[in-house]
Deep mutational scan, measured.
Amino acid sequence: NQASVVANQLIPINTALTLVMMRSEVVTPVGIPAEDIPRLVGMQVNRAVPLGTTLMPDMVKGYA
Rank of each mutant, 00 (worst) to 15 (best):
residue 11 I to T: 02
residue 16 A to L: 15
residue 45 V to W: 00
residue 34 A to N: 09
residue 33 P to T: 08
residue 26 V to I: 14
residue 19 L to A: 13
residue 14 N to A: 05
residue 9 Q to R: 04
residue 45 V to R: 00
residue 34 A to I: 14
residue 9 Q to I: 14
residue 25 E to V: 02
residue 10 L to S: 03
residue 27 V to G: 03
residue 58 D to T: 10
residue 45 V to P: 05
residue 35 E to P: 12
residue 15 T to N: 05
residue 50 P to Y: 08
residue 14 N to I: 03
residue 1 N to R: 01
residue 27 V to F: 03
residue 41 V to F: 04
residue 15 T to D: 05
residue 53 T to M: 12
residue 45 V to E: 01
residue 57 P to G: 06
residue 31 G to Q: 06
residue 43 M to F: 07
residue 14 N to M: 03
residue 61 K to W: 06
residue 58 D to K: 04
residue 2 Q to S: 13
residue 33 P to A: 15
residue 33 P to G: 08
residue 53 T to A: 10
residue 50 P to C: 04
residue 6 V to H: 06
residue 20 V to A: 08
residue 42 G to K: 02
residue 16 A to W: 07
residue 25 E to Y: 03
residue 56 M to H: 14
residue 25 E to L: 03
residue 55 L to E: 00
residue 11 I to Y: 01
residue 33 P to S: 12
residue 41 V to W: 04
residue 19 L to M: 14
residue 41 V to K: 06
residue 23 R to L: 12
residue 24 S to E: 14
residue 13 I to G: 04
residue 29 P to L: 15
residue 27 V to A: 10
residue 28 T to P: 03
residue 50 P to F: 11
residue 32 I to W: 02
residue 44 Q to K: 05
residue 38 P to D: 10
residue 54 T to M: 07
residue 36 D to Q: 09
residue 31 G to A: 10
residue 29 P to E: 14
residue 47 R to F: 08
residue 50 P to A: 15
residue 49 V to C: 04
residue 21 M to N: 13
residue 33 P to K: 06
residue 55 L to I: 12
residue 63 Y to M: 15
residue 60 V to G: 00
residue 6 V to E: 03
residue 55 L to P: 00
residue 63 Y to T: 07
residue 30 V to G: 04
residue 38 P to N: 14
residue 32 I to V: 14
residue 47 R to H: 08
residue 63 Y to H: 08
residue 54 T to K: 04
residue 21 M to K: 04
residue 50 P to E: 15
residue 43 M to H: 11
residue 21 M to P: 01
residue 57 P to R: 08
residue 59 M to N: 08
residue 19 L to N: 06
residue 41 V to N: 04
residue 36 D to K: 12
residue 52 G to K: 05
residue 53 T to I: 13
residue 8 N to R: 14
residue 57 P to H: 12
residue 40 L to K: 00
residue 46 N to G: 09
residue 28 T to R: 01
residue 62 G to W: 06
residue 15 T to Q: 05
residue 45 V to L: 07
residue 61 K to N: 11
residue 41 V to T: 07
residue 14 N to T: 05
residue 14 N to Q: 04
residue 56 M to G: 08
residue 19 L to D: 05
residue 55 L to D: 00
residue 60 V to Y: 01
residue 29 P to R: 02
residue 4 S to T: 11
residue 44 Q to F: 14
residue 52 G to Y: 10
residue 20 V to P: 08
residue 50 P to G: 12
residue 29 P to I: 14
residue 31 G to C: 02
residue 35 E to L: 06
residue 37 I to N: 03
residue 23 R to Y: 14
residue 17 L to W: 00
residue 44 Q to G: 08
residue 44 Q to H: 04
residue 39 R to I: 07
residue 41 V to D: 04
residue 6 V to K: 09
residue 18 T to Y: 03
residue 29 P to C: 14
residue 64 A to F: 02
residue 10 L to A: 13
residue 35 E to A: 06
residue 53 T to C: 02
residue 57 P to S: 11
residue 23 R to T: 13
residue 15 T to G: 04
residue 46 N to M: 09
residue 28 T to E: 15
residue 51 L to M: 15
residue 29 P to F: 15
residue 27 V to K: 06
residue 45 V to D: 01
residue 51 L to K: 07
residue 35 E to M: 07
residue 26 V to T: 11
residue 41 V to E: 05
residue 5 V to Q: 01
residue 37 I to P: 01
residue 15 T to K: 07
residue 11 I to M: 12
residue 33 P to R: 11
residue 53 T to E: 14
residue 56 M to W: 13
residue 38 P to Q: 13
residue 12 P to H: 11
residue 1 N to V: 15
residue 56 M to L: 13
residue 26 V to R: 01
residue 22 M to R: 00
residue 3 A to Y: 06
residue 30 V to N: 07
residue 25 E to S: 06
residue 47 R to L: 09
residue 3 A to T: 14
residue 62 G to R: 06
residue 11 I to R: 00
residue 20 V to G: 13
residue 56 M to K: 09
residue 47 R to S: 13
residue 15 T to S: 07
residue 36 D to G: 09
residue 46 N to I: 13
residue 14 N to E: 08
residue 45 V to T: 14
residue 54 T to S: 09
residue 8 N to I: 15
residue 8 N to H: 07
residue 55 L to G: 00
residue 10 L to Y: 05
residue 24 S to P: 13
residue 6 V to W: 03
residue 41 V to Y: 06
residue 29 P to W: 05
residue 59 M to V: 04
residue 11 I to Q: 01
residue 64 A to Y: 02
residue 7 A to N: 03
residue 10 L to R: 05
residue 50 P to H: 11
residue 5 V to G: 05
residue 34 A to Y: 07
residue 59 M to L: 07
residue 23 R to M: 04
residue 2 Q to F: 13
residue 62 G to F: 04
residue 29 P to D: 15
residue 36 D to Y: 06
residue 4 S to F: 06
residue 3 A to I: 10
residue 34 A to S: 12
residue 40 L to F: 03
residue 9 Q to H: 12
residue 28 T to N: 06
residue 44 Q to I: 11
residue 63 Y to E: 08
residue 47 R to N: 08
residue 51 L to I: 10
residue 14 N to W: 04
residue 1 N to F: 07
residue 14 N to P: 03
residue 27 V to Q: 08
residue 25 E to G: 14
residue 12 P to Q: 11
residue 40 L to M: 12
residue 51 L to W: 14
residue 1 N to P: 15
residue 50 P to D: 12
residue 58 D to W: 06
residue 19 L to R: 15
residue 2 Q to T: 15
residue 9 Q to A: 04
residue 14 N to C: 06
residue 5 V to P: 02
residue 44 Q to D: 08
residue 16 A to F: 13
residue 20 V to T: 12
residue 38 P to E: 10
residue 50 P to V: 15
residue 60 V to W: 01
residue 43 M to A: 06
residue 59 M to W: 12
residue 62 G to Y: 09
residue 53 T to W: 10
residue 47 R to G: 08
residue 45 V to A: 15
residue 39 R to T: 04
residue 55 L to Q: 00
residue 57 P to T: 14
residue 47 R to W: 07
residue 22 M to C: 11
residue 19 L to Q: 10
residue 49 V to D: 00
residue 30 V to D: 15
residue 16 A to D: 05
residue 49 V to R: 03
residue 49 V to G: 01
residue 8 N to P: 03
residue 42 G to L: 02
residue 53 T to P: 00
residue 30 V to C: 05
residue 52 G to W: 08
residue 33 P to C: 13
residue 34 A to K: 05
residue 25 E to P: 01
residue 33 P to M: 10
residue 64 A to T: 15
residue 7 A to I: 12
residue 4 S to N: 02
residue 48 A to N: 13
residue 38 P to G: 05
residue 54 T to I: 10
residue 34 A to H: 12
residue 24 S to L: 10
residue 17 L to R: 00
residue 10 L to N: 04
residue 61 K to G: 04
residue 53 T to Y: 12
residue 50 P to R: 10
residue 10 L to C: 11
residue 55 L to F: 07
residue 28 T to W: 03
residue 56 M to E: 08
residue 11 I to F: 02
residue 4 S to Y: 12
residue 17 L to M: 08
residue 44 Q to V: 07
residue 28 T to F: 03
residue 7 A to M: 08
residue 7 A to L: 09
residue 22 M to P: 00
residue 11 I to L: 11
residue 53 T to V: 08
residue 15 T to Y: 06
residue 3 A to R: 02
residue 17 L to I: 09
residue 43 M to D: 11
residue 51 L to P: 11
residue 22 M to H: 00
residue 24 S to C: 06
residue 54 T to V: 05
residue 28 T to A: 08
residue 22 M to D: 01
residue 58 D to G: 09
residue 8 N to A: 15
residue 48 A to K: 07
residue 40 L to A: 02
residue 1 N to H: 06
residue 28 T to Q: 08
residue 15 T to E: 05
residue 35 E to H: 09
